[in-house]
Amino acid sequence: MITIQNILKQVLIASTLLMVCSCSSTNSEKTALVGKWEGSLKDSTSGDSLEKIILEFTTNGELRQHLGEGQLQNTIESEYEVKNGQIITIEKETKERDKSSYNIVNDTLTIVYEGLTNTYIKLKQEKE
């Protein structure tokens, strides 16, 4: 016999499963990003490579963008989250918020930001 109580139980179970699946998707997206990725920063007008960039995503939601090399290296620190195929960043110093779409295939990360596509290769983890 179908009762309102049985229907409510089914709705509650379905809602719980949906929430669990949504959370694990976001966590698996974030886990896939964790690590260091190397690429080249591109000029927004010409698309030419300007300088080396390493993106470092941590498990605790921090992103460090290391631009340049040696004494000329500059690091920008941000917080990040991933949601629905997008990386949402908030720069720590300026509080500027940005969104980029991204895709990971094997060890290649492709980020599209303001119509410009950048590709990064995952760096192998150093053994301690």
Rank of each mutant, 00 (worst) to 15 (best):
M1Q: 07
M1W: 07
M1L: 09
M1H: 08
I2W: 03
I2H: 04
I2N: 01
I2L: 11
T3P: 01
T3Y: 05
T3H: 01
T3M: 03
I4T: 10
I4E: 15
I4N: 13
I4L: 15
I4M: 12
I4A: 13
Q5M: 15
Q5Y: 15
Q5I: 15
L8H: 03
L8K: 15
L8N: 12
L8Q: 14
K9H: 06
K9R: 09
K9M: 03
K9G: 01
V11Q: 08
V11S: 01
V11W: 03
L12D: 14
L12I: 10
L12H: 09
I13D: 08
I13R: 06
I13K: 11
I13G: 00
I13L: 13
A14I: 01
S15F: 02
S15I: 00
S15M: 03
T16F: 09
L17A: 08
L18K: 04
M19P: 00
V20W: 02
C21E: 07
S22L: 08
S22I: 03
S22G: 10
C23A: 10
C23R: 11
S24Q: 14
S24F: 09
S24K: 10
S25W: 09
S25T: 09
T26V: 11
T26K: 04
N27Y: 14
S28W: 06
E29F: 05
K30S: 10
K30H: 09
K30A: 13
K30C: 02
T31P: 00
T31M: 03
A32D: 09
A32W: 04
A32Q: 14
L33I: 01
L33M: 04
L33R: 01
